[in-house]
Design a protein around this nucleic acid. Structure first.
Length: 883
RNA sequence: GGGCAGUUAGCUCAGCUGGAAGAGCAUUUCCCUUACAAGGAAGAGGUCGCAGGUUCAAGUCCUGCACUGCCCACCA
């Protein structure tokens, strides 16, 4: 491919994303000689298309996979999608609505057909998008939470837990979404503050004229009250406990009970108790043995209430009840009040707590194991701070409501024995893969299956097991080899919903953790720190970024700000900067390739000849170590930044620039020698960058290596040669001189085209040697024509002064500088150096510092003071000279 | 109410086990120097949220406070 001045991302990306899939670069087979490194992808909902969160999540996983592959691991990254229960069903229901239909018009069977049809049309767009961003997934192992093998796992898991007695059916208070028409688990409810009222209601005492004032945000539930509760230590009510109240509007007699949960300081300290529609009240009812009266049904209509309220909606009932209370003088007062209200995490409808017959999973035992796993570091959070909330959540867990009253999902594999008319017989229900042939109780042969489906997170919880076909064979080789997986990468928003549950199920079914590490990354926010959402209109579509800046730029920008566990703000500029980095890589490579033209072969062995060579090798070794450790500890941001810094400011700005001296040599061997190092460092750096930016690095690697293995399958260099450590120090001296001369020239407005001479007055023989040996570097980069070294050289007229290290450097600038400007410059510098002298002197005069600080620190300060003193002497001489 | 993070240059963020404040973007000056103007060279810009403490030395450790964000909670 032609290397133009500007990197053409589109063409390159198309080529390589296709290549990896077609050549099965990332397909993994069991290889007992290699260590596996396994990740299972968090399966995206089939409703979804790629958003920034996916882009981040999958980029990070891809980086881990690609880096481990370079390190020689047998890597496997399993792709897949999730059927997405409620979320997906809602989407299709909306489509139906546009046709003026509901799911009931179609019936269950036809509706499910529609769901499957819809899934097959849109289900894999997200997978295609993962291919587009270069994910090194094993495409032979694509899984879907509702495909055959996964369904088998789900059934098997259910049946095992059912038979163990962990799964049971019961009527309990659940979270009901009247819009989705289903129960939800506790974590599927999101709480949000809402402005409302606090109604103060009088509950008259049966036997006396008095009354108790009760405070509530939900007056309509009064109709279902079965008690009023007060705190046992509340003096105001001590002699009322046990007394009978007459429930306003209803007339039912209810008791005053005491319960520790009641907060004396809230409201009047007396709480109405509605066991059927409030979790706290439900608990109180259990403790005090109260009756439970349901007054709201699953359609949000009033039931079991006086005639006039029967069938009203919750809102209507509230209005009526308040009106009637007021008219009958039961209403003491109404205050404004703000409190949090539960809403459905899928449709934001207000959640109604109500009594309902549901399936529950007893998670007590598996939770304990999941907690132990974290405490024993069998599974480790990165960053560690997420462990605590995880443990706290598991320790306070109620049983999981796993049934949903929707149609799209895994139908609960429980069968009921029925008579010829479809009426349920009084036999034991059976959990089974298929419909049973014969009822073990009554020998009947007619059955109906339970109507509910499982919570979508039930199949998600099995994911690390089910992708390896546990449902079909729990002793299969893949499971043995790849499980437990190496790491789970996910955002913190689903730690409870998903992460914790996978650990629970991992122990339940495999008696082991599902992954050794849990890598928690942040959430992508917009450049104002807001969460991206469609309703806010602040969504940045990764596909637009890819279109504008290229996939590598997208990936680099995300990687570079992915500090573990921290949310990130990302803006257009960061993608632009990343795009520029890609272009920089491209052009540096282009420079080297241009110089390789006409040269048949460059040494693979590197053989440093001079300071710059030794320096860049030492710097690279250092970078290599840092980057490797950063990748391996999930500090992807650190790795990215280190690479950026090394490549741009060390390799390009200094080494390539210095290499030009030898590149221009007429001696081909000298040119080849520097090229071999240029190529070696470039190739190795490309390898390290390749996990983050796989496209551009693959392309350049291929141009550079022609027929060799692609970069993704290459091996990292062993770097088993020694580096010269003092080269870094020496180079620093040279760089200091160059930068100072450049600064002076810049301040004097001397054109880069103008070459000047320089006189180096030397005070330190060792430093003289370094400068003399590398005078070419100074000449090349500071635009100096000739350097005169000497001792006590006389200062030329009309020259400027540079003090660098132990050199006093004069630049004769006849006609180029304004003497007054030079004087002003030196005066300004004097002020700075004086400050330095004061600071360091003060330190050295501090007895306790000299007594207690380590020698090396004292020595450093002394060196600084000497340097400053030297500098100020030279500046003063210079100022005198100029006068 | 509890927990967790954060507060460093105009903006977005680095600063590991305490020893002279860093990057990118934006900004100013000079430069189309044959890898790159999506670039190069140089400059300006910070009492590191506040208050104490430990230490010879604190952005870095400890305590308290303030503010911001997130999560959890049985906010009637």
């Amino acid at each position: 491919m032609d290397m133009g001045k500007i990197y053409n991302a589109k063409e390159v990306e198309k080529k390589w994303s296709k290549y990896w899939v077609e050549n099965k670069t990332f397909s993994a087979k069991i290889d007992k000689n290699k260590k596996p490194f396994t990740i299972v992808i968090p399966p995206a909902n089939v409703t979804g298309s790629l958003h920034m969160g996916h882009a981040l999540n999958t980029t990070l996983q891809d980086i881990l996979i690609r880096f481990k592959k370079l390190q020689g691991y047998n890597t496997l990254w399993v792709p897949g999608t999730d059927h997405g229960g409620i979320a997906t069903q809602t989407v299709v229901e909306k489509l139906l609505k546009k046709e003026g239909k509901t799911k009931y018009d179609l019936g269950r069977e036809k509706f499910l057909e529609k769901m499957w049809q819809w899934r097959s049309e849109t289900g894999d767009t997200i997978l295609d998008q993962l291919k587009m961003i270069g994910c090194g997934l094993d495409w032979d192992r694509v899984a879907f939470t509702m495909d055959k093998s996964r369904s088998k796992s789900v059934k098997k898991a259910f049946i095992q837990m059912f038979d163990k007695g962990l799964i049971y059916r019961g009527k309990k208070l659940v979270n009901w979404c009247s819009s989705c028409e289903t129960a939800l688990s506790d974590i599927e409810v999101e709480y949000e503050d809402e402005k409302s009222n606090l109604w103060h209601i009088k509950y008259p005492l049966k036997d006396s004229g008095g009354y108790v004032i009760v405070v509530t945000t939900r007056p309509e539930t009064l109709l279902g009250d079965t008690a009023v509760a007060v705190n046992p230590s509340d003096d105001r009510y001590t002699n009322l406990v046990g007394k009978i109240l007459k429930l306003p509007l209803v007339g039912r007699e209810i008791k005053i009970v005491s319960d520790y949960i009641v907060d004396k300081s809230f409201g009047t300290g007396a709480v109405k108790v509605t066991p059927a529609h409030d979790a706290t009240d439900n608990d109180i009812a259990k403790r005090s043995n109260l009756e439970t009266i349901e007054v709201i049904d699953i359609n949000g209509r009033m039931i079991n209430v006086p005639e006039k309220y029967l069938g009203l909606s919750i809102d209507e009932a509230r209005k009526e009840v308040v009106k009637d209370l007021e008219e009958a003088d039961f209403l003491e007062k109404v205050e404004n009040y703000s409190h949090s209200v539960g809403r459905c995490y899928r449709c934001s409808t207000k959640i109604e707590p109500l009594m309902s017959e549901q399936w529950f999973l007893n998670v007590g035992e598996m939770s304990k194991k999941a907690v132990d796993a974290a405490n024993d570091e069998k599974t480790v959070f990165h960053p560690h701070s997420w462990k605590k909330p995880y443990v706290l959540w598991l320790e306070n867990l109620r049983d999981w409501c796993i049934s949903r009253q929707i149609w799209w999902g895994h139908r609960i594999p429980v069968y009921y024995c029925v008579d010829d008319n479809g009426g349920k017989n009084n036999c034991k229900s059976i959990a089974s893969f298929e419909e049973p042939k014969e009822c073990p109780c009554c020998k009947g042969s007619k059955f109906v299956q339970d109507n509910d489906v499982l919570d979508t997170w039930f199949s998600s919880a099995l994911w690390p097991i089910s992708v390896f076909n546990w449902g079909e064979d729990e002793n299969n080789e893949d499971l043995k080899y790849f499980y437990p997986t190496s790491v789970l990468a996910t955002g913190h928003e689903i730690i409870y919903l998903w992460v914790a549950r996978m650990v629970q199920f991992g122990f339940e079914f495999m008696n082991d953790v599902p992954y050794k590490d849990i890598f928690i990354h942040g959430i992508v926010r917009d450049n104002h720190g807001k969460k991206m959402s469609k309703s806010l209109g602040n969504v940045v579509d990764p596909r637009d970024i890819i279109e504008k800046y290229g996939t590598d730029a997208l990936r680099f920008a995300l990687a570079q700000s992915a500090a573990p566990g921290r949310d990130m703000q990302i803006s257009e500029e960061s993608f632009l900067a990343a795009r520029n980095f890609a272009n920089k890589i491209w052009n540096a490579s282009r420079f080297i390739l241009m110089n390789l033209e006409g040269i048949d072969k460059v040494d693979e062995e590197i053989d440093p000849l001079e300071l710059a060579d030794e320096w860049i090798i030492a710097e690279f070794k250092n970078t290599f170590a840092k980057v490797k450790s950063a990748y391996n500890t999930y500090n992807i941001d650190t790795a990215s930044r280190e690479l950026y810094d090394f490549f741009w400011t060390k390799y390009c700005d200094w080494y390539i620039e210095l290499s030009k001296i030898r590149m221009m040599s007429s001696d081909i061997n000298i040119k080849k020698q520097v090229l071999s190092i240029l190529v070696y460092i470039l190739k190795s750096t490309l390898q390290l960058i390749s996990p983050v930016m796989p496209f551009i690095t693959s392309e350049i690697w291929q141009i550079l290596n022609k027929n060799a293995k692609i970069i993704a399958e290459s091996e990292l260099p062993s770097l088993n040669f020694s580096e010269s450590l003092d080269s870094v120090e020496k180079m620093k001296n040279i760089q200091d001189i160059i930068v100072k001369i450049r600064t002076l020239r810049s301040q004097m407005n001397i054109s880069p085209a103008v070459q000047t001479e320089a006189l180096f007055n030397i005070l330190d023989d060792a430093k003289e040697k370094i400068a003399k040996e590398n005078e070419n570097y100074i000449k090349q980069l500071a635009k100096i024509s000739t350097i005169y070294f000497g001792k006590n050289m006389e200062r030329p007229k009309n020259s400027a002064l540079v003090v660098a290290g132990s050199f006093e450097i004069f630049l004769p600038l006849e006609g180029l500088i304004d003497i007054n400007k030079e004087k002003a410059r030196l005066a300004k510098e004097t002020a700075l150096v004086r400050q330095e002298i004061e600071r360091t002197t003060a330190k050295l005069n501090n007895d306790t510092f000299v007594k207690r600080a380590p020698k090396i620190e004292i020595e450093k300060v002394r060196i600084r003071l000497n340097a400053a003193t030297f500098k100020i002497t030279k500046i003063n001489e210079s100022l005198k000279f100029l006068d």
